[in-house]
C-alpha cells in the first residue's frame, strides 16, 4: 500500500509512545544507573564504574546459563518448526473438524505458564504421574528431579507440547492463503507431493515462518516459569536458564548492581538477535 507522508500521525501514536516509554524507558534508565553503583541503601551508594559488568561478564554462572540457553533455544527451534509445519500440512482445510482442531490445538497456549509446569510436574512423577509411571513400568529408569538428561528431555517435551501449536497455527494460516489455482496447476503437471511442498507451500509460508521463528526464539530465550515450576532449575543447575539466573540474583539475593549489569547484557543480546530477525523479516516482506 502506498502510504501518505504525514507527520501529524505522531499524534495518533503519542499515547502508545508515552505508555510504553513510562514502562520501558524509565525502568531502563534505572537499570543503567544501578549497574554502575554499589548500592547498600538508597542514601549510601558508591560509583563503581564498569566493575559489575566485568564481574558479570567473567562470571562462569553467566557463561554456563548462556550456553544452556542457546542449546535450549536451538533444540526448541529444531524440533518445533519442522513438527509445526508437518502438523499444519495434515490439518483439515474446512468444516467443523477444522474449527475443532484449531480450538484443541490452541488449548496449551492458553494455559498459564506455571500451570503448564504443574501439569508436567504431576504427569512426569513416578508415583502419581502417568508418564513417569509408565516409563518406569516399561523398565526405563526415569526421574526428572535427579537425572540431568531426564530433566532436559522433560523440559524440552514440555516446551514442544506447549508451543508447537503456535507454529502449526501460523503455518496453517499461511497455507490457507494459497489460492486453489496453484494446486490445480500442480495436479496438471503431475507434481509430486514433495514438489508441491517445496515450490508452492514453502515459499508461501516463508513470511509466517519467519514470524514463527522470531516468536519461538524470543520466547524460548526468556523462558522462566515452566522450568522454574517443573525442576526449579535443577538437578544442580542443569536447567537454570538466563531468566532464572537473573531472577535469583535480583529478587533472591537483592544484588542490585550485578543484577542490573546482567540485565543490560541480557537485553543487549536480545536486542541484537531481535534486530537481526526483524531485518530478515522485513526484507522477506519486501522481496515478496
Amino acid at each position: 500500500m502506498n502510504k501518505v507522508h504525514n507527520n501529524k500521525a505522531w499524534w495518533l501514536v503519542l499515547p502508545v509512545f508515552l505508555l510504553v516509554a513510562f514502562s520501558a524507558i524509565v525502568p531502563m534508565m534505572t537499570v543503567v544507573n544501578y549497574s554502575v553503583q554499589d548500592i547498600f541503601d538508597p542514601s549510601t551508594r558508591i560509583f563503581v564504574g564498569f566493575d559489575w559488568y566485568k564481574q558479570v561478564l567473567q562470571d562462569p554462572r553467566l557463561h554456563d546459563s548462556l550456553l544452556r540457553q542457546f542449546i535450549y533455544s536451538g533444540c526448541v527451534l529444531l524440533i518445533e518448526i519442522p513438527l509445526g509445519i508437518a502438523i499444519a500440512l495434515t490439518m483439515p482445510t474446512k468444516g467443523r473438524w477444522a474449527s475443532l482442531c484449531l480450538i484443541v490445538m490452541a488449548i496449551p497456549l492458553l494455559i498459564p505458564w506455571n500451570v503448564v509446569g504443574t501439569i508436567w510436574q504431576i504427569f512426569g512423577r513416578a508415583d502419581i504421574g502417568l508418564l513417569g509411571w509408565s516409563l518406569n513400568e516399561a523398565g526405563i529408569d526415569y526421574n526428572y528431579a535427579s537425572n540431568t538428561m531426564d530433566a532436559w528431555v522433560t523440559v524440552l517435551v514440555m516446551d514442544v507440547w506447549h508451543w508447537t501449536s503456535l507454529v502449526a497455527l501460523l503455518c496453517y494460516s499461511g497455507l490457507r492463503a494459497i489460492p486453489d489455482v496453484y494446486y490445480q496447476a500442480a495436479r496438471i503437471d503431475r507434481a509430486s507431493a514433495w514438489a508441491v511442498f517445496r515450490h508452492i507451500q514453502l515459499p508461501k509460508m516463508k513470511s509466517v515462518l519467519l514470524i514463527a521463528v522470531l516468536l519461538r526464539f524470543m520466547d524460548s530465550f526468556m523462558i522462566y516459569t515452566e522450568p522454574f515450576v517443573l525442576t526449579g532449575g535443577g538437578p544442580g543447575n542443569a536447567t537454570t536458564f538466563l531468566s532464572q539466573t537473573l531472577t535469583k540474583m535480583a529478587i533472591g539475593q537483592f544484588d542490585l548492581g550485578p543484577a542490573a549489569a546482567f540485565s543490560l547484557v541480557y537485553f543487549l543480546i536480545i536486542l541484537l538477535l531481535s534486530w537481526l530477525f526483524y531485518t530478515a523479516m522485513t526484507h522477506a516482506d519486501k522481496n515478496r
Binding site: V26, M29, T30, N33, V36, Q37, I39, P42, F47
Partner: peptide, 15 residues
C-alpha cells in the same frame, strides 16, 4: 526520583 539512583556519568550518557 531518589529510587532511580542517578549519577552524573549516567545522566551525561542519557543526555
Amino acid at each position: 526520583m531518589g529510587w532511580m539512583a542517578w549519577t552524573l556519568p549516567t545522566a551525561i550518557f542519557f543526555g
